[in-house]
C-alpha cells in the first residue's frame, strides 16, 4: 500500500469519525449522565456515571412499557416476516418458473407495492370494517403487504439460479406441486431467505409511521412509538431520552455485526441490473 493511500485513508477515517461516530458517542455519554448534567447538552465526559441506573429507570418507566414495546415489536416482526417469506417465495417461484401473460400483471403489482405510498386513512377504515384496527394481527398483515414487493423481487431473482431439473425430478418421483415447492425448493432458498429476514426485520422494527397510524393506544405500543412518546415525557430528563435512543439503536447494531453480508446483498440487489 502506498503512503498516499495511508494518508487519504487516515484523513477519511478522521472525517468519518467526526461526521458519523461522534453523534452516537454524544448519545452514549449523555445516556450515562444525571438528569441535571445532561440538560445542558454538553459534549463532555459524565462527572458521575449513571449508565446502569438510567438503563433501569428507562426500562421501568410507565410500568415497563419498553419491555411491552419490545415484545410487541418482536411479535409483529416475526409474524409479518413468516407470512412474507412463505407467500412471497411462492409468488417469486411462480413468476420465475411459469411464463405467461399474467406475469406482467403480477409484476406490475409488485412494482406498485414498491413505489406507491399506502393510502393511510382508507386503510384505517378498512381495518375498522374487518375488526383489525389497533390490533397486532392487523399490523402483521399490513407489514407483510408492504414488504411483499421487495420479497418477491429477491426470490424471483434467486430462483432463476436454481435448475429446473430439480423440480422435474421431484415431479417424476410423484411429488405434488406444493410438495415440490415446500420440500424441494424452499429449503434451497435459505441464503436469500436469510437476506429477506435480516433486511425486513430491520425495516419493520424501525418502522414508526405505520404503527403511529394503525396501532394507537398504550397496550399496543411498539419500540419506535415509545421513543416518540418518551420525547414529551422525558423533556426534563434528557439522559433518559438518550438512553432510550441507545436502547433502540442496539438491535440493528447487533444484526449488522452478524449479518453484514446479507444486508449488503439485499440492499444492493437492484444496483447491478438496474
Amino acid at each position: 500500500m502506498k503512503r498516499r493511500q495511508y494518508l487519504i485513508g487516515a484523513l477519511s477515517l478522521a472525517v468519518a469519525f467526526v461526521v458519523f461516530v461522534i453523534p452516537f458517542i454524544f448519545v452514549f455519554l449523555n445516556a450515562a449522565k444525571t438528569a441535571a448534567e445532561s440538560a445542558t447538552l454538553d459534549f463532555s465526559w459524565p462527572r458521575e456515571w449513571r449508565f446502569w441506573q438510567n438503563l433501569v429507570e428507562v426500562v421501568q418507566a410507565r410500568d415497563y412499557m419498553l419491555l411491552l414495546a419490545y415484545f410487541n415489536s418482536t411479535v409483529i416482526t416475526v409474524g409479518a416476516i413468516a407470512l412474507m417469506v412463505v407467500s412471497g417465495a411462492m409468488v417469486g417461484y411462480l413468476l420465475q418458473r411459469r411464463r405467461t401473460p399474467w406475469n406482467r400483471i403480477i409484476y406490475g403489482f409488485v412494482l406498485a407495492g414498491l413505489i406507491i405510498p399506502p393510502a393511510v386513512v382508507p386503510t384505517i377504515w378498512l381495518l375498522q370494517q374487518i375488526g383489525l384496527f389497533k390490533s397486532i394481527t392487523g399490523m402483521i398483515f399490513i407489514q407483510c403487504a408492504y414488504g411483499l414487493g421487495f420479497t418477491v423481487l429477491l426470490y424471483r431473482a434467486f430462483i432463476a439460479t436454481i435448475p429446473r431439473d430439480l423440480d422435474e425430478a421431484a415431479i417424476i418421483d410423484g411429488a405434488k406441486p406444493w410438495q415440490v415447492f415446500f420440500k424441494v425448493i424452499l429449503p434451497l432458498l435459505k441464503p436469500v431467505t436469510v437476506t429477506v429476514i435480516v433486511v425486513q426485520s430491520i425495516t419493520i422494527f424501525n418502522d414508526f409511521t405505520h404503527p403511529l397510524y394503525y396501532l394507537p393506544g398504550a397496550e399496543n405500543v411498539t419500540v419506535q412509538l415509545t421513543l416518540y412518546n418518551f420525547q414529551s415525557q422525558f423533556v426534563s430528563q434528557m439522559n433518559l431520552l438518550f438512553m432510550n435512543i441507545l436502547l433502540v439503536t442496539v438491535p440493528p447494531l447487533i444484526v449488522f455485526v452478524f449479518f453484514n453480508r446479507q444486508i449488503v446483498a439485499g440492499m444492493t440487489s437492484g444496483a447491478v441490473k438496474g
Binding site: 407467500s87 411462492m90 409468488v91 411462480l94 393510502a119 407483510c144 408492504y146 411483499l148
Partner: peptide, 27 residues
C-alpha cells in the same frame, strides 16, 4: 395440472389485495 399452479399467488395476492390494493383504490 401444471407443476406451477396459479393458486401459488393466492396467499400473497389476498394479503396484498386486501391490505394494500383495496385501500389504494378506495382512496
Amino acid at each position: 395440472g401444471s407443476p406451477y399452479p396459479y393458486w401459488f399467488v393466492l396467499p400473497a395476492g389476498a394479503i396484498f389485495g386486501i391490505f394494500f390494493l383495496a385501500p389504494t383504490l378506495a382512496s
